[in-house]
């Protein structure tokens, strides 16, 4: 583990317990004056914090892997269409009125799985053809993303009741509020498995830095790499969307922040991006909890985009000045 990863891990280990204290009611760990403090901590805040960490780690790791795979700093885990497909699954569960219990995440996971299967049908086809591999595969993913987006809009426009419509729109904004251990156990194992799969792709992603032909000359099997990307991005992003809705910007922004602190190889970016993603989502969710809003709390997905977009623009402008 590099010094950067260790630092981020330490920061995360400090931030996680601290985050439990913040919220609508502040809990003093030494003199808990709030009734049911233990229950609030164990049943509300801890699962929520663990979920934020899992989702952030998944998005950060998947973002780093996607940018490495596409050799493009503008790539984002949503590009393969897995996140929109998972969201489509969730929207359908609302539209059909099955949003209670396990049905919502199950529908979303089915959506993610369906997208992974469709991408799997494309994977390997022309993977070895010069220039055909990554571009063809990514185009297929983007088509899938727009198809899922269109179907989602259709489902929204056909929402049976205004109540279902409100539920869909609110859910799509992305949040980890009011999540329980059940969501944690749904999200954590696939996220960890996905991050493990992406780690297996690390060396191939490094080789891809030199272009597809040079990567193949270094022994990279493009079809195997596509499968690893489908499984890794599918598991991390699918699991995240299934329990928290769409949370943008993390997968795009975090690898950018972390890259200058590494040797810039995609493989050396994976672990620090996952840790930084976890830290970012944890802190952002904490801020959402403590911000005083009359109509409840700010949605995490909105907050990250509100902070992320200007920050990202600033970063881009600074990078441009650096290049000039």
């Amino acid at each position: 583990m590099t010094r950067l990863s260790l630092t981020l891990l330490l920061a995360l280990l400090v931030a996680l317990p601290l985050s439990l204290l913040a919220g609508r009611v502040w809990i003093d760990p030494l003199h808990p004056a709030v009734p049911h403090a233990a229950t609030i901590l164990a049943e509300l805040r801890l699962p929520r914090a663990v979920l934020a960490v899992a989702i952030g780690a998944g998005l950060g790791g998947a973002g780093a892997a996607m940018q490495g795979y596409l050799r493009n700093p503008l790539a984002d885990p949503g590009l393969f269409g897995i996140a929109p497909a998972a969201a489509l699954g969730a929207v359908l569960s609302f539209a059909f009125g099955f949003s209670g219990g396990f049905a919502l995440p199950a529908f979303a996971l089915l959506g993610a799985g369906g997208a992974m299967a469709l991408l799997g049908l494309v994977a390997g086809r022309g993977a070895a053809a010069p220039g055909g591999g990554v571009a063809l595969f990514t185009l297929a993913g983007m088509m899938l993303a727009s198809l899922a987006g269109a179907l989602m809009s259709l489902a929204i426009s056909l929402a049976p009741t205004p109540f279902a419509l409100t539920e869909i729109v609110t859910w799509l904004m992305g949040s980890v509020a009011d999540r329980s251990w059940r969501e944690v156990w749904l999200c954590l194992p696939p996220t960890l498995a996905g991050l493990g799969v992406l780690a297996l792709a690390g060396r191939s992603l490094d080789a891809l830095t030199l272009g597809e032909t040079a990567a193949r000359s270094l022994g990279v099997d493009p079809a195997r790499l596509q499968w690893l990307m489908i499984a890794g991005v599918g598991l991390t992003v699918g699991a995240g969307v299934a329990v928290a809705g769409i949370i943008g910007f993390v997968g795009l922004m975090v690898p950018h922040l972390v890259r200058p602190l590494t040797d810039r190889r995609p493989a050396s970016l994976l672990l620090p991006s996952a840790l930084a993603g976890a830290l970012l989502v944890l802190v952002a969710d904490c801020l959402c909890r403590v911000l005083p809003l009359s109509s409840g709390e700010l949605r995490l997905g909105i907050a990250l985009s509100l902070v992320g977009a200007p920050f990202f623009l600033h970063l881009l402008l600074r990078m441009r000045q650096g290049l000039a």
């Binding site: 050799r71 493009n72 060396r203 490094d206 080789a207 891809l208 830095t209 030199l210 272009g211 032909t213 040079a214 000359s217 270094l218 022994g219 990279v220 890259r259 040797d263 810039r264 190889r265 995609p266």
Partner: peptide, 27 residues
């Protein structure tokens, strides 16, 4: 066994020279 340098070599990220050279050890 066979090292190959393509006609239009790419370097996607702004690696340091030593890191770039270390990519040759991937096999």
């Amino acid at each position: 066994a066979i090292g190959y340098l393509p006609q239009t070599p790419e370097i996607a990220w702004d690696l340091g020279v030593e890191v770039l050279v270390s990519l040759g050890r991937i096999p």
